[in-house]
Amino acid sequence: MKIAGTAKLPFTPERAYALMQDPLILAKAIPGCDALDKTGDDEYRLKMKMVLASLSGSFEGKVRLTAPDPPNSFRMLVEGSGKIGFMKGEGLIKITAAPDAGVDITYEGDAQIGGTMAAVGNRMIDMTARMLIKRFFEKLASEPA
């Protein structure tokens, strides 16, 4: 599944970039994230719990940040699996100074889900992915400038 969209953040490009490279900040912004522990240069171990409607499940996986081009762009991979299935999202995140103020974020990538979730949730995947991304950027936006 293709995922693409835009978001706005009230920061300078440098600050926006730095926030999205900071594991403590990411841990707060990734919906349901319980822990994000560094395991390598650009890699973190992720534990998250997703609660959505009556669906709930724990996932373990990793976050990788690659292709750094501060403060313009980087690639992000989030992957996790648990009893109810697995998910993987990978994409390019671009940061450009907005004409008015702050930055425009554009993201573009691919997402996959599998397991029981995939077979029963077709009609919800797209909406859910979008909502989670929206929540992520809303959380980021609430950080101090």
Binding site: A53, S54, L55, S56, G57, K83, I84
Partner: peptide
């Protein structure tokens, strides 16, 4: 009607 199917698939485990 929404909760029980999720539980049967173990997507929800209250």
């Amino acid at each position: 009607m929404s909760l029980i199917p999720m539980m049967k698939l173990r997507l929800a485990s209250p």
